[in-house]
Computed example of a mutant assay.
Amino acid sequence: MSNEVAVKEQSMSERFTNKVTALFQSNVGEVALTNFQKRLAQNYFIVADSVLRKAEEKRQKKSEQYRDKVPVVWTNVNMDELAQSVVSAARIGWDPMQDNHVNLIPYKDNATQKYSLTFIPGYRGRELKAKKYGLEVPDDVVVSLVYSNDVFKPHMKSFDNPVEHYEFDIVNPFDRGEIIGGFYYHVYFEKPEKNKLVIMSIKEILKRKPDKASPEFWGGEKDVWKNGKVVGKEQVEGWHDKMCYKTVFIAAYKDITIDSQKIDDDYLRLNKLENDYKEIEVEQTISENANKGNVVDIQGEDVPPDNEALDAEIVEMDKLAEESNNPPTDPGF
């Protein structure tokens, strides 16, 4: 790395940190960042820098016909917007260096010719968000899949049964059979009569599977690409169990009612970022976007898919793409 590049990087790092620091300060007076907030600011810069570098590398590898003319570099990033997003995410506790917290996805706003980074929460990020803004946050949330060889017996609330509960026995942990469903259980220690058990059949779980779900994650057939054309199919095992678990987990935390009195600018900002991103219609798929650096153009472009092309739902799987050769950490343990 040349001295000139090192100086520029230091300058951008300082500029980034200064903006974040300024936004953390109160209107009353100077408020020093906590060590935790300083670490988060550093983590966001490191991850954002990596995302931008890889996006620029990919931009340069494209043929001139499909290459965006605006380089994906810090000088072309909407710094004010990014700093505000970092502050909002940090206040919730999202750490981009932790698995399953949040993914930074870059895209270009053609109106401003600037790159922005939207923040897409992983399932652990959704958990943190629900716990901060929930109206009646459970003391514990149990999430599990049920397999055909397991024994699961729910006891729903009734006149004779004031507390919902269940019996669950894994008869053979080494051969549990096929997934037949899942459940989540909201637990309230002080008021067990409020405990809530929700059961989801495998059919209900798969209803939440994206229409263009990637076989790399859900399993199934995958197109084999060569020279921009499909030349065949291959069977991919994927991470079907993990995807089903993630689906039930997200449902469990989406089921926590948001307290309108807790809604603040951070909540509104991050919700807007996620909703804006969902409205972006692109042909380009984003197999490496989870903290890796693909750019999504707001207006999209007609680009032949890459060999590893996946759909946008992959961003919710956080860093599983990086772990495609190793089983991801089981979030249930």
Results as ranks from 00 to 15, higher is better:
residue 114 K to V: 02
residue 37 Q to I: 05
residue 232 G to I: 08
residue 43 N to W: 01
residue 132 K to D: 10
residue 151 V to A: 11
residue 302 D to F: 14
residue 67 R to E: 14
residue 230 V to I: 14
residue 156 M to L: 15
residue 200 M to H: 15
residue 197 L to W: 13
residue 229 K to M: 02
residue 302 D to A: 12
residue 332 G to Y: 08
residue 247 T to Q: 01
residue 332 G to E: 10
residue 140 D to G: 09
residue 237 E to A: 14
residue 242 K to W: 13
residue 159 F to Q: 13
residue 212 K to T: 06
residue 9 E to Q: 15
residue 199 I to S: 08
residue 287 S to A: 13
residue 220 G to S: 09
residue 212 K to M: 09
residue 134 G to A: 04
residue 57 E to Q: 12
residue 49 D to S: 14
residue 35 N to H: 06
residue 230 V to N: 05
residue 229 K to Q: 08
residue 210 P to S: 02
residue 119 F to R: 07
residue 65 Q to S: 13
residue 307 N to T: 06
residue 56 E to R: 00
residue 215 P to I: 02
residue 5 V to R: 14
residue 116 S to H: 15
residue 253 Y to E: 03
residue 273 L to T: 10
residue 276 D to Q: 13
residue 281 E to H: 09
residue 146 V to A: 01
residue 148 S to Q: 05
residue 116 S to W: 12
residue 70 V to G: 01
residue 27 N to C: 04
residue 198 V to N: 12
residue 112 T to R: 07
residue 320 L to F: 12
residue 243 M to R: 08
residue 242 K to H: 15
residue 237 E to P: 00
residue 266 D to K: 13
residue 162 P to M: 03
residue 233 K to T: 11
residue 121 P to W: 00
residue 252 A to K: 04
residue 332 G to L: 13
residue 119 F to W: 08
residue 196 K to E: 11
residue 245 Y to F: 14
residue 220 G to D: 01
residue 227 N to M: 06
residue 40 L to Y: 10
residue 54 K to A: 10
residue 179 I to G: 02
residue 6 A to R: 14
residue 45 F to K: 11
residue 21 T to H: 08
residue 284 Q to P: 03
residue 47 V to N: 04
residue 240 H to V: 05
residue 9 E to C: 04
residue 152 F to K: 02
residue 45 F to L: 11
residue 160 D to C: 06
residue 306 D to T: 12
residue 314 I to Q: 04
residue 301 E to M: 08
residue 122 G to M: 03
residue 239 W to F: 15
residue 82 L to M: 11
residue 222 K to D: 08
residue 268 L to H: 03
residue 88 S to K: 11
residue 275 N to V: 14
residue 38 K to Y: 03
residue 221 E to G: 10
residue 45 F to D: 11
residue 305 P to M: 05
residue 193 E to C: 03
residue 71 P to F: 00
residue 110 N to H: 06
residue 39 R to I: 11
residue 165 H to D: 15
residue 64 E to L: 13
residue 48 A to V: 05
residue 12 M to E: 15
residue 48 A to D: 05
residue 50 S to G: 15
residue 165 H to R: 07
residue 60 Q to H: 04
residue 263 I to P: 02
residue 17 T to C: 07
residue 116 S to K: 14
residue 131 K to F: 08
residue 244 C to R: 07
residue 26 S to G: 00
residue 323 E to V: 09
residue 75 T to G: 01
residue 215 P to L: 08
residue 248 V to P: 03
residue 123 Y to R: 01
residue 150 D to P: 06
residue 304 P to C: 06
residue 167 E to C: 05
residue 253 Y to N: 02
residue 52 L to N: 04
residue 21 T to E: 06
residue 31 V to T: 13
residue 13 S to Y: 12
residue 118 T to W: 10
residue 321 A to H: 09
residue 286 I to E: 05
residue 124 R to P: 00
